[in-house]
Design a binder for these strands. Structure first.
Lengths: 298, 298
DNA sequence: GAAGGTTTATACGTTTTTGCATGAACAAGC
DNA sequence: GCTTGTTCATGCAAAAACGTATAAACCTTC
């Protein structure tokens, strides 16, 4: 039947792990950059090689057998080790040339990063900085990015974070808005104001405003957008009001603080990377340049 | 340039680990059942992919760089996990101990299986056989059970079925019943007989009897039970008549064939399992023992 | 009940990978 | 110094793996 000592194919194991983690062959194929028939064949070959039925083909979808589940438990360890290898490799890379991925909110990507990127370009022409302008939190542990700029303190182990200069967020509006809706002279005047909302919800923002005596609720957020840049553009065109970090607003002509006497919302900034990646020359370079620029008050 | 998301090739990692452990590409090739050029290319590709120089080519032999050593540390974990996967797979496919679920009608569970279970106990003391005495058809594809004993031909794809010895069912009654209701001397005498009914309906049974000239209808089935054992007990106590496979009735004292001249109802038996039979030693053992016993006429 | 969106399985042409040769560089032994 | 036995690197033909296209089965939704 089976060959006595068949050398296991690690790519087939990778295929099995990805299939289980993705839940389907198709999903695993997308994840690994392969195709569904390839994944199917690799998993089938692994089943034949190990002599264990791992999946039960039940129409649409695959169902893990008990035997398969036990295998996958060890496969997860294997996958974690593989990620550590990749992580260590990235950290060992002493070449300045290469790719560094940075995740950052789209607003920062659009208004804060450009001068920093030109600065990096001058320091290292062969360096490619991939900016993932995603507003959701990326997982640095899984190396979805090398560096992240965040406004919340990271609490995961294995990550090192540097706190940059704190900044302040104010409520801004365009002249067109104030002409149409009136300029507020007190916190109470915001009661009927219109704000741009975020997809993830505005509860935290509403709480911050309420703490300052601004009587707003969900009804004041009739529109929402995932894109911070879009929301900021709405504000600039006078569609609504919106909060923005002052470093960005200062570079946006045509917006004014709605009520200067209102206490600003403090915004902290952390620069985060993985411990293993600190040893990489190019990641360290990007990290240091970003940290230096973001820590300088201005 | 590197692609943004470079999926690591686990076989290349395996090649690197084997090379380090064997001390040379040639040695690793022999160990993995590959050739030296293949290993060399895989390691070179991994170096290019990770952007790390792992080996210093110094004439004869390779020397690990410091960066490579750090990678290998994690690679050893990966290799250990891989070995555990293979180990678990070997254990899964060869271990006789474990649980095998068998679904079978409760009548068979009560009267046919006991000697077979003791036989299995002798062959494999660590084997646990779960007998699900359910009269409804279980779904083997969804692994509600590993083996099913059925009396209808399975039509689902992906199932492995073996036809066992055919048996015959007769109509039985107890002396108490015959004394009270009279013993039928011809098929027509069953017109006012009382039969035990099944929950799922008696249409097929009625049709079989009618085909033999027995004039019965739903009115002859005043009572019904889901439990075949209960129904058979009713027959034994003289409450009513009932059909039963002769192999069971022969082991039940105190029941007699109601009308020996009546042609018996043929009953076929299939032993059914799913794909995992091919790889699971314990399922195969139970399957073979059941098949051998159920195929022997007696 | 029909339609759309999934899923896995199969067929075939093409790309990639592999193995076999062979060559070059080095170390050890005579 | 030469031989011998290693090592890793390189061409080239064959084999294996891959991707595209397509089919069949299933779940969901309207």
């Amino acid at each position: 039947m089976n060959k006595p000592h068949d050398i296991p194919d690690w790519n087939q194991m990778r295929a099995l792990l990805a299939t289980v983690q993705a839940g389907s062959l198709s999903g695993a194929a997308k994840r690994l950059g392969l195709t569904q028939p390839t994944l199917g064949r690799q998993v089938a070959a692994l089943e034949a090689s190990l002599g264990v039925t791992i999946f039960e083909r039940v129409g649409r979808g695959l169902v893990l057998t008990e035997a398969g589940a036990q295998l996958v438990a060890h496969l997860r360890d294997m996958g974690e080790a593989a990620e550590k290898v990749a992580m260590a490799a990235a950290g060992q890379s002493q070449s300045i040339d290469g790719v560094v991925r940075v995740t950052v909110s789209d607003v920062y990507a659009a208004h804060v990063l450009p001068p920093l990127l030109t600065q990096l370009r001058a320091r290292a022409p062969g360096l490619v900085v991939e900016v993932a302008a995603v507003n959701s939190i990326s997982d640095l542990i899984r190396r979805e990015a090398d560096i992240a700029i965040r406004h919340v303190r990271p609490d995961q182990d294995g990550l090192i974070a540097r706190r940059c200069a704190d900044s302040a967020a104010y409520i801004y509006g365009a002249p067109a808005y104030f002409e149409r809706e009136g300029r507020p002279n007190s916190a109470a005047d915001f009661a009927r104001a219109v704000f741009v909302g975020a997809f993830e919800g505005n509860d935290i923002f509403i709480a911050e405003l309420n703490r300052r005596g601004v009587p707003v609720g969900p009804a004041n957020f009739p529109w929402a957008t995932q894109s911070g840049v879009t929301g900021w553009e709405w504000v600039r065109q006078g569609l609504c009001l919106g909060a923005m970090v002052d470093v960005v607003a200062r570079r946006t002509p045509g917006v004014e603080v709605a009520l200067p006497s209102l206490e600003p919302i403090p915004v902290s900034t952390w620069l985060v990377t993985h411990r293993e990646l600190r040893t990489s020359a190019r990641i360290r370079l990007v990290f240091d340049v970003l940290a230096e620029a973001l820590s300088r008050r201005g």
